[in-house]
């Protein structure tokens, strides 16, 4: 209770610092997520219909996923230096594997008879993609987005180590200055953002399942 009160009083005293950190955090996360998705989805569409490439993509994504985010950040340091850009690049790399893997699995799981019918009845490749493949793969694709969003929002907390800013700053500063209030506000905000992403994208996922007739 005492700790929570400390957090609240710090927040009341420093709303500007909090909002600034929150803003940075969101900007980092959303930019990283957007770039990750922008890379992973087209890549997924490209490889999904080719068995060999699809397997290779899934294996590569699995490898990328096993690298600890902190190690990725450290590796990027000599390449891109410190600040916003390397942080966003690292977050994009965090977002990429789940989106790619789920897109590939979702597209490959589309009922082959429905695909045969789509082509056989005279849909162009594009019509087939938009009217059959994407709707049927949508629940898995949205699940991939949810996982990526949660991981990116949590991962963005580490950006502070390479000067990327965000809510992680509050945590590291709180620790350095032994300011429990600041530390706590940072930690709770990061957790709340992650939960919010889980909930928001979870709803999208369920809506897409209804829309695709699979739920």
């Amino acid at each position: 209770m005492g700790a929570l009160a400390e957090g609240l009083s710090w927040l009341r005293a420093n709303p500007g610092i909090f909002l600034g950190a929150l803003g940075e955090h969101l900007l980092l996360s959303l930019t990283g997520l957007a770039i990750g998705i922008a890379l992973a989805l087209p890549l997924g569409l490209l490889v999904a219909r080719r068995a060999r490439l699809a397997e290779a993509a899934i294996a590569a994504a699995g490898l990328l996923r096993t690298l600890p985010s902190l190690a990725v950040l450290a590796a990027l340091l000599p390449l891109l230096g410190v600040g916003f850009t390397p942080s966003v690049v690292a977050l994009a790399l965090v977002a990429l594997p789940p989106v790619l893997v789920n897109a590939v699995i979702g597209l490959r799981g589309v009922d082959s008879q429905a695909l045969e019918a789509a082509t056989g009845l005279g849909m162009t490749a594009r019509q087939r993609l938009l009217r059959v493949e994407l709707p049927l793969a949508a629940p898995l694709i949205f699940a991939g987005l949810r996982i990526a969003a949660v991981q990116v929002v949590s991962g963005a907390a580490l950006a502070t180590f390479i000067g990327g800013g965000g809510l992680g700053d509050l945590v590291t500063q709180g620790m350095a200055l032994l300011e429990t209030g600041r530390l706590l506000v940072g930690g709770i905000a990061i957790a709340a953002l992650a939960l919010g992403m889980e909930y928001g994208f979870g709803r999208l996922e369920r809506a897409s399942a209804r829309w695709s007739g699979t739920a």
């Binding site: 008879q113 056989g120 005279g122 009217r131 829309w211």
Partner: peptide
Amino acid sequence: TLRRGIGYVIQNVGLFPH
């Protein structure tokens, strides 16, 4: 174009599930 002029019933029906 050819396919749109042909009525095709596939062996396993292949309705669009959604």
